[in-house]
Write a protein that binds this DNA or RNA. Structure first.
Lengths: 108, 108
DNA sequence: CGCTTATATAAGGCAACACTTAAAAAACCG
DNA sequence: CGGTTTTTTAAGTGTTGCCTTATATAAGCG
């Protein structure tokens, strides 16, 4: 599953927000998500799996608990993709590069 | 449709990449996408519609041509969401904020 | 050991989405 | 005007993804 697909789901984005603060147990995450989205524990667990398998999160066992943490690599990838568009806002309203084709010169 | 959902589709990401260079006609975009993804012209047009309706692209008519351009607002929103994770890579491997709960102190 | 807690997996249903083909709309051109 | 080009819209179909309930796994506890 592509990084952007993973982030396409609001539940998964919320989970990542929770993990951004620090390591969290599956149960704690589930509690918040169940409260906010009204979905079941297995549903949350499935989202955690997606996050694991797509590299957004890593897990560590502590007794019966599973402690999840953010794994930055895919987020970095997303950030890198975004890079090319940053010129559209960080340096005013003009992109860093103009259309270099024959058909240009119509910027009115 | 949420910004991240829009970016979830590889065709739409590719279209945005093309638009990042500069304004492009629907037909030119379609030609590239059809070549790269093997989908029909109407399929591309439907993706362009999604980009329009979600605010990622704006259109301008020129004769029968439709010239598409990047609209940065939603990308900016995505960039803003990503902001909270930047501490995970831009300043070394440690996030900007530690887990402030009772159960912390286990960073081994 | 049996019961409870914590978490994951399995199986099935339904809705959303991306594709297809067909047709419409609109400008251009002879 | 009639035909061609450019693009969009409409209708139908198949696949994918998320959810549910039920069940498995495994550790903790008395």
């Amino acid at each position: 599953m592509h990084a952007f697909d993973v982030l396409g789901d609001p539940v998964r984005r919320r989970i990542l927000e929770l993990l951004a603060v620090g390591e969290q147990a599956s149960g704690d995450i589930s509690a918040v998500i169940q409260d906010e989205f009204g979905i079941s524990q297995p549903a949350v667990s499935q989202h955690l799996r997606v996050l694991r398998e797509s590299g957004f999160a890593s897990v560590r066992a502590e007794g019966t608990r599973r402690l999840y943490a953010v794994d930055a690599a895919p987020l970095r990838e997303v950030d890198a993709w975004l890079e090319r568009f940053r010129g559209f806002w960080s340096s005013g309203s003009t992109p860093s590069k103009r259309n270099s084709r024959e058909e240009s010169a119509n910027a009115d």
